[in-house]
């Protein structure tokens, strides 16, 4: 039998080490299906091959001229 919203919320709050009042917990339990619906709605087939929008830039914190070999074009200078 899969866990109920109440068991799920209890477990997640415990994992997050959050101590909440009873009525706050009751609100979480009531809202939980709606909160999950938002997340589950994002697993769309259209997104199957997409990269995330946030990307990693290895150049950060290195002064662009730190090394002779490469005059790395700063990724900051996006033309308008």
């Amino acid at each position: 039998m899969s866990p109920s919203s109440e068991e799920i919320v209890t477990s997640l709050l415990s994992m997050a080490r959050l101590t909440v009042s009873d009525d706050e917990k009751a609100t979480f339990v009531r809202d939980f299906p709606l909160i999950r619906e938002g997340a589950d709605g994002l697993y769309l087939p259209d997104v199957e091959f997409d990269e995330p929008a946030v990307k990693f830039n290895p150049l950060d914190y290195y002064p662009a001229t730190a090394w002779p070999a490469v005059q790395a074009q700063s990724t900051r200078s996006e033309e308008v």
């Binding site: 068991e7 799920i8 477990s11 997640l12 415990s14 999950r36 589950d40």
Partner: peptide, 17 residues
Amino acid sequence: MTGDDQKLDVVLEICGI
């Protein structure tokens, strides 16, 4: 206090696994 196995069941449920 929920034990690790209950917590695992919970997160598996959320992820639909």
